[in-house]
């Protein structure tokens, strides 16, 4: 069944994620990126950031807390077995550091019904504890029919 376009604009409750240096290191290892900015505390202290920073794509770790409710949304009722990630867009405004508290919001920004598939885009925006934007992501998923 096609995804109803009436859900465009639907918002999901904000989530606040506390960034720990251990989680950054775990993520950096998982993506095989041992850049000292992410994993070397001595290097990080002396860097211009003064602390361990997260790889840019770490934004998907706190972003996931807003994507999961979309996937589990009974009203939206996505066919998860047929869903794959189609496109991803990320804009970065400020680095995320260990110790930051990141608040993220999400809304459905687009739904398209095509013959053999539907697409659904979720716009996710994150701010840090200073109220400054850190990242905007647009996740587009493809659901095969």
């Amino acid at each position: 069944m096609a995804i109803d376009i009436k859900f465009i604009g639907k918002e999901y409750p904000a989530y606040t994620y506390d960034v720990s240096k251990e989680k950054i290191k775990e993520y950096a290892k998982a993506i095989k990126n041992l850049d000292p900015h992410y994993v070397d505390e001595e290097f990080a202290k002396k860097s211009k950031y003064g602390a361990i920073v997260a790889p840019p794509t770490f934004a998907v770790v706190f972003g996931a807390f807003l994507i999961e409710p979309v996937f589990l949304d009974k009203e939206l009722n996505l066919n998860m077995a047929m869903l794959v990630h189609g496109e991803q867009e990320m804009d970065f405004f400020e680095v995320v550091k260990a110790g930051d508290s990141i608040s993220t919001m999400a809304k459905i920004s687009d739904i398209k019904n095509k013959e053999k598939l539907d697409t659904i885009s979720v716009e996710v925006t994150s701010k840090n504890q200073h109220g400054r934007n850190v990242c905007r992501g647009v996740y587009t998923f493809v659901v095969r029919k």
Partner: peptide
């Protein structure tokens, strides 16, 4: 980020899977 040497200098990335 390896190329630019500073992860904070990446401003945008987009792709299609």
């Amino acid at each position: 980020t390896k190329l630019i040497g500073d992860p904070g200098k990446l401003k945008k990335l987009k792709c299609r899977f």
